[in-house]
């Protein structure tokens, strides 16, 4: 894939830590690649595995999921359920022929604006290297 390939990435961020961290990146005027577009959810535990499949089906090249650090979850334990679900989803994706690396899971606190900017940049580069080969995408959307 060419250097100019701009991957489409959806980020599911929990409201309390990761979304606040993403806001902090803005307040600190850091630069974050425009490839990532964010869906705010109350908790990473809210993320239904179908959200990720739906995003891929709609033509996303990668999905980032982020919740509070272990022990910091605003809802006590939602982030741990999210992490476990993600592990299963990765295996399933591998089985249907989507590189599991297209899904990135990370813990991000409200204070980690700088880390957010870096992680998004790295993930975009990683997905850019993988290119647009998404067998799950609905006909007509991935072009």
């Amino acid at each position: 894939m060419s250097e100019n390939f701009q991957p489409r990435i959806v980020g599911f961020l929990c409201n309390w830590c990761s979304y606040a961290g993403a806001d902090l990146a803005g307040t600190s005027r850091l630069k974050v690649p425009a490839n990532l577009r964010v869906v705010r959810v109350p908790c990473s535990g809210r993320i239904n595995p179908l959200f990720i499949f739906k995003a891929l089906e709609e033509g996303a090249d990668g999905v980032m999921v982020s919740g509070c650090h272990p022990g910091d979850c605003h809802y006590i334990s939602g982030n741990r359920y999210a992490k476990r679900k993600l592990a299963v989803i990765r295996r399933l994706l591998d089985w249907v022929g989507v590189e599991p690396e297209r899904i990135h899971f990370t813990w991000l606190s409200a204070s980690e604006g700088a880390r957010y900017a870096v992680e998004v940049g790295e993930f975009v580069d990683k997905v850019r290297a993988l290119g647009r080969r998404n067998p799950m995408a609905r006909q007509g959307v991935a072009s």
Binding site: D23, G26, T27, K31, V32, A34, R37, V38
Partner: peptide, 24 residues
Amino acid sequence: ANIREQCSWVTKDRTEATNKALAI
């Protein structure tokens, strides 16, 4: 729709920022 903290403030290029804001 958060087009400030997560769009205009983190994006430099006007076209990129406008496109992202449109999507958001």
